[in-house]
């Protein structure tokens, strides 16, 4: 297993290279540059040119790319142009990454928990009222744009029933680990719960139909013939088999958290990477945008690896290969 992982990581290196070029070019293609939005109308062309020159923005793209890569290898993503002017991008990301990771983990766990419970209830009551309700509910939540739910939840649990904070991550550098841990949990919970409640659809649909398929399998009949109660057959046999093809998706949902967090973090005033990305986009903060996209690209590659590891872990047929 360890060997396989090492091999997979090595294969990833050229992929990462490719992704980095792609991202760099995408960033180049974006209209305008950070100075346009940031200058006072009176500054003359020469000043702008001087600033662009200082930032290396007037060099050909491949030279800019090489510069950028060399710097990235030194952990230097440049400094922010607009979001946090002059502050190192690596520092900004370093501050914001943990809130996003913690919220992402909670959101992923909750999403799977909700989706699995709903799918189990649905499959065990196929075509009954509760099943139909859950199917409709999930279709609905996937059809309505997620930020609508985020606003509703925000208004409900921050203002109408004020049990959750309106903004912040609950992390305070001056405090100890436990204070930060629980402080962050308190701040991350509502956005994570909200994401989870309304993004069960894909896992739910897939798992529900898998559960129904698995119910008709021969091993289920064997378990019943042993005298295992139907609810235990679901718990011990069917669920795991039905979950198998979905397990591989967990890797991607963990690493895909950045994209999912964009709206939620912005709406809930939770300053993580998602919110940072939105800010960077609107401020055309290239250095941050490219750094985040690179991070996301690499994460996606690792998501594939993580998915394979999870699959091998739950399926003995893959394990022995």
């Amino acid at each position: 297993m360890f060997k396989t992982i090492v091999r997979r990581v090595l294969i990833m290196l050229p992929q990462i290279f490719f992704v980095s070029i792609l991202i760099f070019m995408l960033a180049q293609l974006m209209p305008g540059d950070p100075f346009y939005g940031n200058l006072n109308p009176n500054s003359d062309v020469a000043t702008i040119e001087r600033m662009r020159h200082a930032a290396g923005l007037d060099l050909p793209w491949y030279e800019q790319y090489v510069r950028w890569v060399v710097n990235v290898f030194h952990g230097d993503f440049g400094t922010s142009y607009t979001v946090n002017k002059g502050v190192a991008v690596s520092e900004i990301i370093g501050q914001r990454i943990w809130p996003t990771v913690s919220m992402g983990i909670i959101a992923t766990i909750l999403t799977y928990f909700f989706a699995m419970s709903q799918a189990l209830i649905s499959a065990r009551n196929e075509n009954k009222r509760i099943d139909k309700f859950l199917v409709v509910w999930n279709t609905l939540t996937s059809a309505v744009p997620s930020f609508v739910f985020y606003f509703v939840m925000m208004v409900l649990f921050v203002y109408v029933i004020p049990i959750f904070p309106s903004s912040g991550t609950g992390i305070d550098e001056t405090q100890g680990f436990f204070t930060n841990f629980f402080g962050n949990l308190y701040h991350a919970f509502l956005p994570a719960l909200t994401i989870a409640l309304f993004s069960t659809n894909s896992v739910f649909q897939y798992l529900r139909s898998n559960l129904l398929d698995q119910q008709a399998q021969d091993y289920v009949r064997t378990a019943r013939a042993k005298g295992v109660q139907i609810k235990d057959v679901f718990r011990k046999h069917i669920l795991r088999n039905a979950f198998l093809p979905i397990a591989s998706g967990i890797g991607y949902s963990i690493t895909g958290v950045l994209g999912g967090a964009m709206f939620a973090e912005t709406v809930f005033g939770y300053p993580g990477l998602g919110a940072l990305f939105v800010q960077a986009l609107s401020g055309r903060d290239y250095t941050i945008i490219t750094a985040l996209m690179l991070l996301q690209g690499i994460l996606s590659l690792f998501g594939g690896l993580l998915s394979d590891i999870i699959s091998a872990w739950v399926d003995p047929r893959i394990r022995v290969k």
Partner: peptide, 15 residues
């Protein structure tokens, strides 16, 4: 006790 036709599909592959 019952014995079935296809012993592969009759056993849980993950157990």
């Amino acid at each position: 006790g019952m014995i079935f036709q296809d012993p592969l599909s009759s056993l849980n592959p993950l157990m």
